[in-house]
Amino acid sequence: MRLATWNILHGRTPADSSVDPVRFARAIEALDADVLALQEVDRGQPRSGMLDLTEIAADAVGGAVSRFVPAIIGDPARAWRPATENDLDATRDGYGIALISRYPVLRWHVLRLASSERFRAPVRLPETRDVLWVRDEPRAVVAATIRTPLGVWTIACTHLTFLQGVNTRQLRRTARWLRQLPGPRVLMGDLNMPAGMARRASEARSLSRGATFPQSRPMVQIDHVLTADPLPLSRQVRVPRPELSDHMPVVVEFQQG
């Protein structure tokens, strides 16, 4: 059984703002993941051609079941509002995370994480030279209780804030929430913190190691696969550098039998 997590930069590369659905599907297919966690996912955003990236990824995995959870609704670079449970089926202006499974999902779970209300940062827009004050985005966690070949597991995906201290609190909240769900449990995603900090805050062990960001010359690991439960033996699978994103994917494979 193979698990993978990847921050996809809404399907593009830092040097190329266009989103090619064929290139994106090819990159997802190459991971060959049975359960796939994605971060920075667009649904119905103009910058990614109004594509539903979760649907494309699910088709590339092989007609898998999926759940997209928007963290915000609107333009991530300009005006947006926090997403709510009423936005789970929104087909436009969504930006968030997704979880995709080849195996039957028994139940979906969603947790919403508050942003830092104090954070503001000025960003000058190149086309107008106007200054935009960027806010910290709210975050979300999506988990699925899945019937896998190794039994019933709960596997979660998240993308935490880059604000140090705030992301630690978000991870502790996520870990407490996850412990209430059926085990064994695995948390995957872009946690925006190094491995040691992630292990301490989650009180879990890491199933992966190695720098994941930036993809062009990885220097730090901020993308993780964590668990606090006994699991079968696993190994990390090294994959070729993808054609898109500024993060490397993380892939972990579990032995069966």
Score class of each variant (00 low, 15 high):
Gln255Pro: 09
Ser216Cys: 14
Val142Ala: 09
Val186Ile: 15
Asp59Pro: 03
Glu137Arg: 15
Leu9Trp: 05
Ala58Lys: 01
Arg107Phe: 03
Val105Gln: 05
Asn167Arg: 11
Val252Ile: 06
Cys157Val: 02
Arg238Phe: 09
Glu243Lys: 14
Val35His: 00
Val186Asp: 08
Val41Asp: 06
Asp190Tyr: 11
Arg217Gln: 13
Asp52Pro: 01
Asp52Gly: 07
Ala83Arg: 01
Met1Val: 04
Arg102Ser: 14
Leu3Glu: 02
Thr158Trp: 06
Asp87Ala: 04
Ala27Tyr: 02
Ala144Asn: 08
Glu127Pro: 02
Gly257Cys: 12
Phe162Lys: 12
Leu233Asn: 08
Met248Gln: 12
Val105Lys: 11
His247Asp: 03
Val69Arg: 00
Leu125Asn: 14
Leu150Trp: 02
Ala121Lys: 15
Asp136Gly: 04
Asp42Thr: 03
Ser245Leu: 10
Gly74Ala: 06
Met50Phe: 14
Met219Pro: 08
Leu178Ser: 07
Leu38Tyr: 00
Ile8Ser: 00
Leu132Gly: 05
Pro76Lys: 11
Ser116Asn: 14
Glu55Ser: 08
Thr91Pro: 00
Leu53Gly: 00
Leu226Arg: 05
Val250Cys: 00
Leu181Gly: 11
Val239Phe: 08
Ser101Asn: 00
Gln39Ser: 12
Pro104Trp: 12
Gly183Ala: 13
Cys157His: 05
Pro138Gln: 03
Ser115Gly: 10
Ser216Ala: 15
Trp133Asn: 12
Leu171Trp: 02
Val41Asn: 06
Asp87Met: 02
Ala30Ile: 01
Leu150Asn: 03
Gly189Lys: 02
Val237Tyr: 10
Arg179His: 04
Trp133Phe: 13
Arg173Thr: 13
Gly74Glu: 07
Gly94Met: 13
Gly165Ser: 13
Ser116Ala: 14
Ala30Trp: 01
Pro149Ile: 10
Ile56His: 07
Leu191Glu: 03
Thr84Asn: 00
Pro76His: 02
Met219Asp: 07
Val252Gly: 03
Tyr103Gln: 05
Glu29Ile: 06
Pro194Arg: 14
Ala15Gly: 08
Glu29Phe: 11
His224Phe: 06
Gly196Gln: 13
Met193Tyr: 05
Thr91Glu: 15
Arg135Phe: 03
Asn86Met: 05
Glu203Phe: 09
Asp32Thr: 12
Gly11Asp: 01
Thr154Trp: 11
Val69Ala: 03
Arg81Gly: 09
Glu203His: 07
Asp229Ser: 02
Arg199Asp: 05
Thr212Gly: 03
Ala211Asp: 14
Trp133Ser: 10
Ala121Cys: 12
Pro104Ile: 12
Arg92Asn: 12
Arg118Ser: 14
His247Val: 07
Ala140Asp: 00
Ala143Glu: 07
Arg78Ile: 11
Thr5His: 04
Ala198Phe: 14
Gly49Glu: 08
Ala144His: 09
Arg199Val: 13
Pro184Arg: 03
Ile100Arg: 01
Val250Asn: 11
Arg185Asn: 09
Val237His: 10
His247Trp: 05
Val250Thr: 04
